[in-house]
Amino acid sequence: MSQTAEQHAKPKLVADQDAQSLPAWTYYDQDFFELEREKIFLPAWHLVGHENDLQDVGDYLTFKMYNEIAFVVRGKDGEIRGFHNVCRHRAARMVDGDYGNCGRNLVCPYHAWTYQLDGTLTGVPYLEQYENFDKAEHGLTPVEVDSFAGFVFLRFIPGGPSLKEYLAPVAEEFALYKTKEMKPLRQPGGRLREVNWKNATDNYVDALHIPIAHDGLHGLLGSSYKLTIDRGVHKIFSQVETKQMSLPSNRAYRKILPSVDHLPEDRQHMWTYYKLWPNLMFDFYADQIDFMQFIPLTPTTCILRESAYALDDDRREMKLARYLNIRINRNVNREDKDLIERVQDGMGSLSFAQGPLGTSEICLRHFAKAMREAIPVAKSREKPSADKIREAFNA
């Protein structure tokens, strides 16, 4: 075999691991999926919604991740609290759906144990049957909850950075857009994506595919895309351009979008995307703010959970701009769904173990490095032995 043929048969590995993607096995392996639960997701802050999703007493939002189920609720005293969505009697789920209103107390639909909105257990049918029973010891189990700039977060395992520290890199952005005053354009909800969660978040910060796979978005934003990383937060931003665009919705959006008084001139037509560790994204537009999360479901499926918020604005032009924004991004999401499914199909192939990352792919490089630091077995090109995986759980 000639030297050239040998080079094609056995590609030379890049010595610098930072220039390589995460290994393919981490995108479909069940053991790695469980490691992610323990090392990444349970200790992390997770966005549940906005304070204005919970305007009335008894309004709640639910959140589900792996086998953990939780909800946040507006109490009679106006406070927002979070609890595991689990009755302390027989573990029945307390509230249903993505959102709702439970009234002025919480009643388990299985045996009618009744809790106040602060989690206190106050009603137990057949109380006399329970020996040495103390209602004070059987309230709903709380989860840590905090709010920032109007957004409500929870985490299942306390410790680590505070919510304020976690969101510090985007604090100025939130204030600039007045997110605390925003109201929901729709309630948070989810859609199934048949891909690993990392596959979906990788695509979010992959700028190289935009001119190839998103003709409409590329026509709207042109080649002005820029990528930066600030204290671990990935930022992609671009100006909506005035050149001829291929899609009518895009042209109409750029023409109709009215000015927003509290935003500086350079933000009037800027689209900005933020990705925060590990799976949270914010889209900042002059007309509205969106959030997206890719929440792990199985090693090869996830839930795209999302919602949108905006300031009160009765102008006809603003209402139409928001409608067009939704149409534009619906097309982008449909195109991305096809792309990430193509990637997920390839991750399971014997022909693919790892891929190179270009020097401009700074966000993908940064994320892969953060994953290897959080779960060091991700440094291995092939799946490690069962003993190595067990050691990783105890590390």
Rank of each mutant, 00 (worst) to 15 (best):
N101Q: 04
F367R: 15
R104N: 15
K39T: 13
N325M: 08
H209V: 07
F367P: 07
L364M: 10
R254L: 02
M347Y: 06
H8Y: 05
H214A: 10
T201W: 03
Y273T: 14
G190F: 04
E335L: 06
T4K: 05
S21K: 13
T141D: 04
H269I: 10
L106H: 02
I80K: 01
E51H: 01
E128R: 01
K39H: 13
S351I: 02
K198G: 11
K383T: 01
L42P: 13
D18P: 09
L13F: 12
M318P: 12
L167P: 05
S351L: 01
R322Y: 01
P258H: 08
Q244P: 08
D266R: 13
E335R: 12
R74M: 03
S307K: 09
G75W: 00
P161M: 07
D59F: 06
P299H: 03
F83T: 15
K388E: 14
Y166K: 15
R365V: 07
G189Y: 08
F33N: 05
G119W: 02
N196D: 02
D314N: 12
I362N: 04
S351P: 00
L364S: 11
S246Q: 12
V107C: 05
R186D: 12
V332G: 03
I295Q: 03
L192T: 13
G159L: 05
P169F: 07
G58V: 03
L163E: 13
R315W: 02
Y204Q: 11
E79H: 01
L127Y: 03
G219L: 09
F174I: 13
Y28G: 12
A386S: 05
Q129W: 00
R155V: 11
C108N: 05
D16W: 06
G103H: 08
P158D: 15
F32L: 15
D96C: 00
N52V: 06
N132Y: 07
F282E: 06
R251H: 06
